[in-house]
């Protein structure tokens, strides 16, 4: 997952970058599934890898991005980006190394004999009871974004 994440940034060809992102998302989904969050993992594949990334690819192919691949790299920008990334990774490693909770793993999920654990149901209940307010606010957020996209991209013949 991390390897392909690097691939997204390093690749000069936008299509290759997008495909790397797809593989990275698959890695993320497998991470979710290994944490017993099957529903989230599958949604991650269906929505992000399936729908969102295909849209991404469409858009990339519709735009003519040959110039992007030819553009010269700014050495300072690359060096700066690398330094910031290395700093963050270094801090992360240091902090995780000194932080006791970072070493422990979660206990395995205990499911009583004869029952199944329905994570879809649990997630749904959580979203529509405890976090229903947040879901509504996100609804407003998406409405604002939609209105904005329409208002910004709408073309009307001027008369």
């Amino acid at each position: 997952m991390l390897l392909f994440g690097v691939g997204v940034v390093v690749n000069r060809n936008p299509v290759a970058s997008a495909l790397c992102l797809v593989v990275s998302f698959v890695g993320l989904a497998s991470l979710f599934i290994s944490l017993d969050a099957h529903f989230l993992g599958i949604i991650q594949i269906l929505v992000y890898t399936g729908a969102v990334m295909v849209l991404f690819l469409f858009i990339i192919m519709l735009l003519d991005l040959k110039e992007e691949a030819r553009r010269a790299l700014n050495a300072w920008a690359v060096a700066g980006g690398a330094v910031v990334a290395l700093c963050l990774v270094g801090t992360l490693l240091h902090v995780l190394g000194t932080f006791p909770k970072g070493e422990a793993t979660l206990p395995p999920l205990v499911v009583p004999e004869g029952q199944t654990y329905e994570d879809t149901k649990a997630l749904g209940t959580l979203l529509f009871t405890e976090y229903v307010f947040h879901v509504q606010v996100i609804g407003l957020l998406l409405l604002g974004a939609t209105v904005g996209v329409v208002a910004l991209s709408k073309k009307e013949a001027s008369k």
């Binding site: 407003l140 604002g144 904005g148």
Partner: peptide, 23 residues
């Protein structure tokens, strides 16, 4: 934290739109 972040993003994303409004 969740509510704070969601509300903050509602504001920021709407601002992105209105800042670029005079296209």
């Amino acid at each position: 934290l969740l509510g704070l972040f969601v509300a903050l993003e509602t504001v920021t994303i709407t601002f992105y739109v209105v800042v670029a409004y005079m296209r």
